[in-house]
Design a protein around this nucleic acid. Structure first.
Length: 982
RNA sequence: GCCCAUGUGGCGGAAUUGGUAGACGCAGCAGACUCAAAAUCUGCCGUUCGCAAGGGCGUGAAGGUUCGAUUCCUUUCGUGGGCACCA
């Protein structure tokens, strides 16, 4: 009886489906466990081997927890709104709903072949109206809520309205409020709503007539077409996530995420403490701007003007350096720029602003080596010593962060320093010898000099003193700041949730709950609407109703989906409170680090809002987070000779002579054609040269040079690094059917590089093929065997054979190909029990800790040892099968029933580890001399140092190393090792 | 640029968290079985010196702490991911 994995897997998948083996109930006596994978986007390319990595890990954990007696929720669904489907629609005219539907069914059938234990009855899709009805509903809850600063939580906006009606606030009285127009009231409320509308900048591409994503903009032009892209202000929806900044930080203390992940989120939130303060802009007596740049002197003291016409508000974390401020820098977008620019500087400033319009934020942050900026001609006055400070604008100051203006202290900040040097701005040193004139020193430990009332203080002590003084003088205040911005929540796109909002007379009017869902209308064309609005603006019926024309972003539906799985069919509410109370937080959430800050922060915020409004009973969605690494592609290259230059006749392709493309094997390519530069032609070489000459039938005297260029070749037609030449000739519709090759050792060897897995690199491997060839169980175990789940690693199909051999070897413990059944009911020996219990211990702890690669190794060791012991005993093998079930459920179920066990192995009793089988009387101690292992000595496990020492010193190897001398020291670690120091 | 992760044989990786570096698997080499192949089994397999016994070197690089460092510290280089409209 052979291991017929195809039949076995088909049989049990059908049986489990028929028995609804994976259906999960919300009512159970058992403790609950919620295991969740990150929501997949059903891309048209289907699954590649990188996708299932996390799914297999969570599946193993779910099955393990089930065996351990938990009621496990392990659902799957699709984040089916998104840009790629829309892009595809624009290109092919197919409706996103149709392509999405098709993609999902491909995805599902691929997933099913791998044998996951999803409860498909709970599947959700974000693009399904019955789902996005609740996304819209939740948006309205956000819209109708505000963040109460006193209680630090979300409350209904009605509470705020009531307060305004009865008490007013610091800016207006109740009477004033009640006299405000509806529009005025709404504008004020909009400043507090958790989902609110405001103006923000987008990447506008005039030529394409559309708004572009950041990654669609490269070097200031559109990725498609290369058209110029500029910043444009547009009305946008936002979520007030900044209100939750502190709670999102505090919440991190309560969840089990990796330190790296928490650190990333903290950095993203970017909390800093410092001060906000105002610098007056120097003006003449009549209040107009002056361009007098002479510094005040004792005989010509500065007259500080009383006109508070212009002032620049800066945010700084280092108010202690106030006397070291040599210039101010405004973000180019800063509203003061136009007002304070002097007549002489107007032209330069305008030119600079034009340049800035073409720069993305990303570029502005990344290219710090390239220092740009422009002087406005205006000066500010240092409020402490009256010094005049030139005001510049520069791209390294971002409008969205802090106040959009900084005070520059070149001796303490490297970017300010570089800027000062570049534009020859004199630098004031306030930290004495801590500043060397070569680079800035951001220390807080220096003693301040030239710093007025702060002189002589340690910088870190001066921070507080400076802020107190600033507050006392009434020119600024202590301030916390966050780098995080409010989350942009509109997209000028079609394929997303419509906003349940009508715009009437400039007021955003929410739809009534009864009008939900507001369904996405069918369209024929997906092009942008007028003025960069979304495609919905092209639909007369839509605009006639005054509906909002943008749609929600991808993270809208994914911010709360984990709740819908708990109660997916509910038509009354998004999720029944009883269901969310039972399932509660997600116990284990598995997904990639690419979602570290986006999705995870948004869903954490939504959860907090829902908790504040009493809709759910917990305020962190994910108790534990496991980050899976990426599976990288392992690309293969062939090297095509592209140009042959003769002394007389340059630039001939080999094809011109040969009539066919010519490929050289890796070694020759690297040795002779590696230089990419055509001006430095490849060297001559004998071996390959002769071969090529022969191929090219060129007279031997000709002088020529080549360049080889690396071409991605489909990894599926390469065996390891050896190209399958026959397959290659058939590849790409026989594009290379007539190719010739220069081989090494009769083989064509390909180049190898690790890159992102993608279709365009021909390095994707389809799990379907592997499941067909080796079976789902082999595939699952091989993915886990590759390495730790959290680590990124390149995919290489080669090793899968080893795992498959392991499963066949396991099979042979039960059945022989010729003899049939070999398992017996005999009583196990101590040695066999020892192997079993060693395995139970290892597998149990490895599975709990997601250390699946070592668990697979432990299974292999176990089967190797049982085979060596010729152990075919049911008592041992049954327990081993239960351990294996989470990893390889099909073969486990087949063998389990073959042994005549009752019921399904999916719900068997998990083996219990018993330490008594592992007790050893003696221990092989490694003996080191000066820390280097020299020999082994077998000694009693419970021996103490006094007994061990004479045995060790008497050993002949130790004697040899001692050379008759007394050891300096003997270190004995019981149960571990002995080290003799000579 | 900033933030995070990571670097160990030809390859994927292991190492009880400061205690035998290279488990397990792939690839490779030699052998058994076979008419042959597949499958299976046995042995070798970091590098270097040596007939051998045995020794030197070795966890990206350079320092340091320690009886002992893949593990801790400092500096440095390479690679991967994220940086707000890809999801």
């Amino acid at each position: 009886m052979e291991y017929q994995f195809r039949e076995i897997e088909k049989k049990w998948q059908a049986a489990w489906k028929e028995k609804r083996a994976y259906a999960v109930s919300n009512e159970s006596e058992k403790p609950k466990c919620y295991v969740l994978d990150m929501f997949p986007y059903p891309s048209g390319a289907g699954l590649h081997v990188g996708h299932p990595l996390g799914y297999i890990a969570s599946d193993i954990y779910s099955r393990y927890k089930r065996l351990k007696g938990f009621n496990v929720l392990h659902p799957m669904g699709f984040d089916s709104f998104g840009l790629p489907a829309e892009q595809y629609a624009i290109e092919t005219g197919q409706h996103p709903a149709d392509t999405t539907e098709k993609n999902i069914s491909t995805f599902k059938s691929q997933l099913d072949k791998i044998g996951f234990c999803y409860d498909w009855e709970r599947e959700v899709r974000t693009s399904d109206p019955s789902y996005y009805k609740w996304t819209q509903w939740l948006f309205l809850q956000l819209f109708n809520s505000y963040f109460c600063n006193t209680q630090q939580k979300a409350r209904p906006i009605a509470d705020l309205i009531k307060k305004y009606e009865t008490k007013g606030n610091k800016d207006f009285t109740a009477d004033e409020w009640n006299r405000f127009s509806k529009k005025q009231q709404e504008d004020i409320l909009m400043q507090r709503r958790l989902a609110f509308s405001s103006y923000g900048e987008v990447n506008w591409c005039e030529a394409l007539g559309t708004v572009l994503a950041n990654d669609e903009v490269v070097n200031g032009v559109s990725e498609r077409g290369g058209f110029p892209v500029v910043k444009k202000k547009m009305r946008q929806w936002y979520l007030r996530i900044t209100a939750y900044a502190d709670r999102l930080l505090q919440g991190l203390e309560t969840v089990n995420f990796s330190d790296a992940m928490k650190e990333m989120q903290r950095n993203w939130i970017g909390k800093s403490e410092g001060a906000e303060m105002e610098f007056e802009v120097q003006t003449t007596d009549d209040g107009s701007l002056t361009t007098d740049n002479r510094r005040p002197t004792t005989d010509r003291p500065l007259i500080i003007k009383a006109h508070r016409k212009f002032s620049v508000k800066v945010y700084t974390t280092r108010p202690d350096t106030i006397f070291g401020v040599d210039f101010l820098v405004l973000a180019p977008e800063h509203e003061l720029v136009n007002q304070i620019t002097s007549a002489e500087q107007k032209r330069s400033i305008d030119e600079y602003l034009t340049y800035i319009k073409s720069r993305s934020d990303r570029e502005r942050m990344a290219e710090v080596k390239q220092i740009t900026g422009c002087f406005t001609g205006a000066y500010a006055v240092n409020p402490f010593d009256g010094k005049l400070i030139p005001i510049w604008i520069a791209e390294y100051v971002l409008a969205g962060y802090g106040t959009g203006a900084i005070m520059a202290v070149p001796c303490g900040d490297q970017r300010d320093f570089g800027f000062a040097k570049h534009f020859n701005i004199p630098i004031t040193n306030i930290i004495g010898s801590f500043y060397n004139g070569e680079e800035a020193n951001p220390t807080k430990d220096a003693t301040l000099e030239n710093s007025g009332f702060l002189t002589g203080m340690l910088m870190k002590d001066a921070i507080g003193v400076a802020i107190d003084k600033i507050e006392e003088m009434g020119i600024g205040k202590r301030k916390k700041n966050y780098r995080m911005r409010d989350a942009g929540f509109s997209r000028q796109r079609y394929w997303g949730e419509p906003f349940p909002i009508k715009w009437i007379d400039g007021i955003a009017v929410p739809l009534d709950e009864s009008e939900l869902p507001l369904e996405l209308p069918h369209v024929e064309k997906y092009g942008p609407g007028p003025e960069g609005e979304g495609p919905l603006a092209n639909i007369p019926e839509w605009t006639a109703n005054h509906y909002e024309t943008s749609t929600m972003p991808g993270y809208a539906g994914s911010s709360w989906y984990f709740l819908r799985y708990m109660d997916p069919k509910n038509t009354e509410t998004f999720c029944d409170r009883k269901a969310s109370d039972y399932w509660n937080q997600v116990d284990v959430y598995i997904g990639g680090t690419e979602h570290a800050v986006g999705h995870l922060l948004y869903s954490r915020m939504w959860t907090k809002v829902m908790y504040d409004l009493g809709m759910i009973g917990f305020d962190e969605p994910f108790k534990k987070l496991v980050n899976q690494g990426m599976i990288q592609g392992s690309s293969r290259f062939v090297y095509r000779l592209e140009k042959i230059e003769f002394e007389s006749e340059p630039d001939i392709l080999p094809e011109d002579i040969l009539g066919c493309p010519l490929f050289v094997s890796y070694k020759f390519s690297k040795q002779y054609f590696d230089d990419k530069s055509y001006s430095n032609p490849a060297m001559e070489f004998q071996e390959a040269l002769d071969a090529i000459r022969e191929k090219l039938k060129i007279v031997s005297k000709a002088t020529f040079a080549f360049i080889s260029s690396a071409i991605h070749v489909d990894v599926n037609i390469v065996n390891g690094v050896e190209l399958n030449i026959e397959e290659f000739k058939k590849w790409k519709n026989e594009e290379f059917s007539d190719a010739t090759f220069i081989l090494e050792n009769d083989k064509y060897i390909c180049g190898v590089e690790t890159e992102k897995m993608s279709k365009s690199k021909y390095n994707t491997v389809n799990p379907d093929d592997l499941v067909n060839k080796y079976g789902a169980d082999t595939f699952r175990m091989y993915e886990m065997f590759l390495g730790p789940v959290e680590m990124s690693k390149p995919w290489d199909t080669k090793g899968i054979e080893g795992v498959h051999r392991f499963l066949r070897k396991l099979w042979r413990l039960f059945y022989d190909d010729l003899k049939g059944k070999v398992w017996t009911d005999e009583k196990p020996t101590d040695a066999e029990l020892k192997v079993l219990h060693k395995t139970i211990k290892k597998i149990d702890s490895d599975t709990e800790q997601f250390s699946y690669n070592t668990a697979v190794a432990a299974f292999m060791i176990s089967v190797n040892e049982l085979a060596d012991l010729k152990c075919n005993k049911k008592e041992i093998l049954s327990q081993l099968l239960v351990l294996l079930t989470p990893y390889a459920p099909h073969i486990a179920e087949e063998l389990w029933s073959g042994l005549g066990n009752e019921g399904s192995v999916l719900d068997a009793d998990y083996p219990v580890f018993d330490a008594k089988y592992l007790v050893e009387a003696t221990k092989e101690y490694p003996i080191s001399i000066n820390g280097k292992m020299r020999t082994m000595i077998s000694m009693a496990s419970d021996a103490e140092e006094a007994e061990v020492r004479p045995i060790v010193l008497a050993n002949e190897v130790v004697q040899k190393w001692l050379e008759g001398k007394e050891p300096k020291k003997v270190i004995f670690v019981k149960g571990k090792m002995v080290n003799v120091v000579v």
